[in-house]
Design a protein around this nucleic acid. Structure first.
Lengths: 231, 231
DNA sequence: ATCAAAGTTGACCATTCGGTCAATTCAGGT
DNA sequence: ACCTGAATTGACCGAATGGTCAACTTTGAT
C-alpha cells in the first residue's frame, strides 16, 4: 500500500484511470494545498504544524500525510506553486507602445497579485528572506533571464529618452518591493493606518498613488515636459 | 538558584557591582544576542534552535539558558532590540530646510541601516509577515504616532507645491519597502544580478539610483522645472 | 452482491528540542 | 589559603511533533 506520489496534479490521468473514485483525491489535494499555503505563509516552514494544516483543511493529520508523503514534500510543492504564480505575474512588459502605459499595466498586475494572493506573496517573501534554499535555482535561472530580457527593453526606452537612466534590474527591484509591501507588511500598514477593512480601504487608496509614484520614479512621462533627457 | 533575569544589559551596574567577575556576564549576553539575532533572522522563531544559537556563540546550550530564561524570552529581547534600532533609524525628517535634502538624507540613512544590519531588517520583516504578534503594539503606538507627526510635515510641503500629493503614510511605506528590499531580498537580488560581493557591489550601485528614484517618486525637486504643482 | 483499489482514521512510535539540574570550575575578596 | 557567588558544562527529562501503520469505510466496476 503506497501513498500516491505527491506530484503536481496531472491533468492527464484525471479521466482515464478506469477503476477508482476519481476526483475525490484531486479535490482533497487542492484543499490541503490551500490550507498549507495559508499556514506556511504565516508560520514559515518550521513553525507550521502538519496538524494545523490538517485542521484548516478539515481532515485528520494522517490523511494529509496520505496525500503528501512528508511535510517537506508538501512544502516543496506549495512553494513551487507560489513561485510559478509569481513568475507568471511577471507577464509581458510589452516593448511596443507607450512605456508609461506598459509600466502602469505591469504595476497594476503586481498590485492585483498582492491583493488577491497575499499568502502567496508572504510565503515567497519568507523563502527569500531565509536565503531561498529551495527556489534559488529558479531565481538565478528563469527570473534572471527574464530580467535580462526585459532589461533590454528598458535600455531602449532610456536611450530614446523616455525613461530615467536606472539600472533596469534595480527598477524591477523597486517595483517588486513596493507592490509586495502591501501584502507582506500588511500587519504594519494596518497598524499604522488603523484601517479596519484592509483589502478594500488600502488598495483603493494605494493603487492610484503607487502607480503614479512609480511612473514618476522611473521617469516615465507621456508628455515630454519632465522626461529625463540627460544624454 | 535563579538564572539572572534576562533584562536588557543595563549600562548602570556594569561597574559598581563590587563582588563578581563583572563584565564577563555582559560580554556573554551580548555574544548570545548577536548570535540569536543572526539565527532568528534566517530561520524565524520556530526554525531557530537554541543549540544553533549556542553553537554560533561558541558556548554550550545550557549556558544560553543560563543567561536567558527561555527561548521565547531571548526572542522577545532580540526583537525589541531590533525594533528600537528600526525606530531609531526613523530619526528626524527635518521640517525646515529643503524637502529634497531632508528625504535624501532619510533614505540614505535607511539604506545604511539595511546595509549595516541586514539581519535586523530580515528579522523585523519576518515578524511583520507573521502578523507582528509581538511588536504590533509598538507599530500601532509609537510608529503610528511618528507617521502622523511626520505626515503633517509632508502635508505642508504638498500645500506649498514642493511635493507630489501622496498620502504621507503611503510615501513612507514606499520608502521603507524600497530600502529594506536590499536587505530582506538579498538572496533574490544576488541571484538576479549575479554579483559576488553583495555588500559592496549592490549598495554602491543602488544607493545613488534609489535615492534619485525615490525623490522623483515623491515629486521632490530642488529646481521647480518638474515639481508637481497641481494646485 | 462481490471485489479491489482508494481513501479515512486514530493509535502509536521515534526523534528532536526546550528546559532543568547537580556537579564543577572560576574569580575576587578577606 | 579559604570562602562565596557567578559562571560553565553535560547529562537528563518531558512534551511535542513528524511520520507509520493496521483496521476500517467508501466507491465504482463487474
Amino acid at each position: 500500500m503506497e501513498a500516491p506520489q505527491a506530484n503536481i496534479p496531472s491533468r492527464l490521468d484525471r479521466i482515464e484511470t478506469p477503476t477508482s473514485n476519481q476526483g475525490v483525491g484531486e479535490r482533497q489535494r487542492e484543499r490541503i494545498l490551500r490550507a498549507a499555503t495559508l499556514v506556511f505563509s504565516r508560520k514559515g516552514y518550521d513553525g507550521a504544524r502538519v496538524e494545523a494544516i490538517a485542521q484548516k483543511a478539515g481532515i485528520p493529520k494522517g490523511n494529509v500525510l496520505y496525500y503528501f508523503k512528508s511535510k517537506k514534500a508538501l512544502y516543496r510543492i506549495v512553494i513551487k506553486q507560489v513561485l510559478s504564480l509569481w513568475l507568471e505575474a511577471l507577464g509581458n512588459v510589452s516593448e511596443e507602445g507607450n512605456p508609461e502605459e506598459a509600466i502602469r499595466q505591469y504595476v497594476n498586475r503586481k498590485l492585483a497579485l498582492s491583493r488577491n494572493h497575499p499568502e502567496a506573496s508572504r510565503l515567497f517573501a519568507m523563502e527569500v528572506i531565509s536565503g531561498a534554499p529551495i527556489i534559488s535555482d529558479h531565481l538565478s535561472g528563469e527570473l534572471r533571464r527574464w530580467v535580462e530580457e526585459k532589461g533590454r527593453i528598458f535600455k531602449k526606452w532610456q536611450e530614446a529618452g523616455l525613461m530615467a537612466k536606472i539600472d533596469p534590474a534595480h527598477a524591477f527591484f523597486m517595483i517588486w518591493a513596493v507592490t509586495q509591501t502591501y501584502a507582506d507588511f500588511e500587519a504594519q500598514i494596518q497598524a499604522v493606518t488603523g484601517v479596519t477593512n484592509y483589502d478594500q480601504e488600502i488598495y483603493s487608496d494605494a493603487s492610484g498613488e503607487v502607480v503614479d509614484a512609480l511612473v514618476r520614479a522611473l521617469g516615465l512621462k507621456r508628455d515630454q515636459r519632465c522626461s529625463v533627457q540627460s544624454a
